[in-house]
């Protein structure tokens, strides 16, 4: 069968049109994908910003908490020591050298204790310094202060000796720990606090349990009272972890935070 020139013309034109449309679709696809890439980049950027904001907030809260501890320590501990030193010194009778010597020695001892306490306090004052000890060191340091208050019996168990340094994550985890501890101090009416720190298969598991009054988690959440709890949940989610609250009225509370580390 003979093909006419017109048929060839039609055929070639058709093929050319198809071959022209194909690259246009290709260009459209690349542009569309690129736009999605832009959107994805923007989302990643905003998540990064949110994380940085949260980190900054955590750092500020750690500092705030530290200042509160410092204030109460100054008032309850160092203030008392210095007051006692003043009383001791003012009661010295120069005419009774033997007693005066004894009192001066006692005042010196009190002043030395005050200096020691002040040094410890100055170390605590720098929130960043606290984190620079590493998460494990910071947790232990915080618990030491709490134990000194003699308000709670503290049981701390950690199977982790060292953790790889991850500055941002460490600050947020430490703040989560502080927040949970603060909740126990304020609301739980507990006598004993048990802290467990484990590191299994790149997962850091921090559990904080108390023998306090506990609470109805569902009800608290429904009444939108547990802003602190929501804050903990939000922060844990931000670093890709999970948190569970095992509690009921009268049975104490166990908060378990699991974070990929």
């Amino acid at each position: 069968m003979q093909i006419s020139s017109k048929e060839v013309f039609f055929l070639i034109s058709l093929i050319t049109i198809i071959f022209l449309i194909a690259p246009l679709f290709m260009i459209a696809y690349v542009s569309l994908y690129n736009r999605r890439k832009k959107k994805h980049n923007e989302e990643t950027e905003s998540l990064k910003k949110a994380f940085e904001n949260e980190l900054l907030r955590s750092q500020m809260e750690v500092q705030e908490q530290t200042l509160k501890t410092v204030a109460s320590d100054l008032h309850d501990n160092i203030g008392q020591l210095l007051g006692l030193t003043i009383i001791t010194l003012s009661s010295i009778n120069i005419n009774d050298p033997a007693k005066a010597k004894e009192k001066i020695a006692a005042a010196e001892d009190l002043a030395k204790r005050s200096v020691k306490e002040l040094r410890a306090l100055s170390r605590l004052l720098d929130g960043e310094e606290l984190i620079s000890r590493g998460l494990i060191g910071a947790i232990a340091f915080e618990l030491d202060w709490l134990e000194k208050s003699q308000l709670f019996k503290i049981r701390y168990h950690s199977s982790v000796k060292t953790l790889p340094a991850k500055a941002g994550k460490e600050t947020i985890i430490f703040r989560l720990f502080q927040e949970t501890l603060h909740n126990i101090i304020r609301h739980a009416k507990a006598l004993e606090i048990i802290i467990n720190l484990e590191f299994i298969n790149d997962l850091l598991i921090l559990s904080i349990a108390d023998d306090g009054i506990g609470f109805n988690f569902t009800e608290i959440k429904k009444l939108h009272k547990g802003m602190g709890l929501q804050n903990i949940q939000k922060r844990v989610a931000m670093i890709g972890g999970t948190v569970s609250f095992d509690t009921a009225p009268g049975t104490g509370t166990k908060t378990t935070i699991t974070i990929p580390y």
Partner: peptide, 9 residues
């Protein structure tokens, strides 16, 4: 791409 793909036929 348009030029070389279109000139295929």
């Amino acid at each position: 791409l348009i030029f070389y793909f279109g000139s295929t036929s």
